[in-house]
Design a protein around this nucleic acid. Structure first.
Lengths: 230, 230
DNA sequence: CAACGCAATCTGGTCCAACCAGACATCAGG
DNA sequence: CCTGATGTCTGGTTGGACCAGATTGCGTTG
């Protein structure tokens, strides 16, 4: 109940306390007392939250909670630290992820190395195994998609996609609870892999589009996507 | 020479010192002495860098610099704090930005509101003014592209693109030093705007592709893109 | 009674002096 | 040469202290 949990719980507490108080959070000293830690600890955590732009530290005035936890750094952080995001943000993140992965498939078709193909083959083999045992893909699905991103040879892109994957994956585990959907996913993975090996960028892209369409629309329902009007 | 500059200079120092020392950086106490600040200050900065995964703080052992500054949080941070990234990372970031903006144009065509169009019109009008005065676009170019992203109504996407824009824009100011390139950019902006207003997603996307192709290839040369073989 | 001004208070920013416990390297003893 | 004890170094954490600007509230004054 301590150490790594401190930052998220502090963040949650800040947001809670700031609501209905002009966005102003308790003072560092109060926070230290409330969490029974030293002020130094609080300041370290606040430094991180401040750098994430989740809060604003105004000298000689107080700590103010910025409205959004939506910044990319903040999202990546919160995902890592396990703080839940709002459905709307998750939904938007999923859309961004879709953008990334479709393009990744296209780029990977021309850039993938034999090393990438080997890893993909390994992932698919392990997927086959898991399916044979009647288990879900989840982790392996993530590995497959990230390996395609890695195959673009763009490390910045890979890091970015990793963050967004972590962001949505936790909430979307349900998808892989159905053996039927698992089977379908795996078959589509095989087709995508085949297109990549044949260096057919257009086909890989098209297959990825349809692969994600199915999954994403299912997820969209789960997440109650925000309608156009409110 | 103090306050906000501390984090980037500390980061730079850490990376420099860690090179050729197993990635191990000086101790907190040494850092505090070197920068003539208290250990508390150093620890706050290290907390941020640690959260960014730029460094790893190993208890009772030392501070270790993680190879990459390429993580999305780290990149956004460094861009904000003005620490220069490596050419390769900038180049990769530009490619990611390209992916984002092309898709943004497509999505914006169907989602843009009258409010978005109004802001775009305003940006284009101001661009016209600046060009008439013989000045470069730079800032306005950024505004134009980000407004298109905003028109996708995806705030996570907007935040993400804002980070990546900040990342590359600083290094690419040179592009807007040529009046001819400025004029060309502006004309293409007008065409894109027109396509958006006509809700022609395919056309908007195509125009954005060709708009970015010109600019990006110019930038690519500046950045000495890494060849396929080292 | 209202407006002004001063003083106490609160806040973040910064620093210092400790202590803890594990990691690490060194050195003495077998 | 190997082994184990020991002392040093490191990050982790705490408490207290001071500063200076922002804020608040009260008392004075017109």
């Amino acid at each position: 109940m301590q150490q790594d949990d401190f930052l998220p719980s502090l963040a949650a507490y800040l947001i809670e306390q700031a609501r209905g108080n002009d966005g102003k959070a308790p003072s560092e000293r109060d926070l230290a007392e409330h969490f029974a830690v030293s002020r130094g600890q609080v300041r370290e955590a606040l430094a991180i939250l401040g750098a994430m732009q989740v809060i604003e530290r105004r000298a000689k005035s107080g700590i103010y909670v910025n409205g959004g936890i939506g910044g990319p750094e903040a999202m990546a952080f919160f995902a890592r630290f396990g703080l839940p995001l709002e459905n709307r943000q998750i939904f938007e993140a999923v859309e961004v992820r879709k953008i990334h992965e479709i393009k990744a498939a296209e780029l990977a078709a021309s850039r993938a190395t034999e090393e990438n193909f080997a890893r993909l083959r390994d992932i698919l083999a392990r997927s086959e195994q898991r399916l044979a045992q009647g288990e879900g893909l989840d982790q392996l699905d993530q590995e497959f998609h990230l390996e395609i991103v890695r195959a673009t040879q763009n490390t910045v892109f890979l890091n970015l996609c990793t963050s967004f994957y972590a962001l949505s994956q936790n909430r979307l585990k349900v998808y892989f609870s159905s053996q039927e959907r698992n089977r379908k996913s795996h078959d589509e993975h095989l087709q995508i892999f085949d297109a990549l090996q044949r260096r057919d960028a257009a086909l890989a892209e098209a297959l990825m589009v349809s692969h994600l369409r199915g999954a994403m629309s299912y997820w969209a329902e789960l997440l109650e996507p925000p309608g156009p009007s409110s």
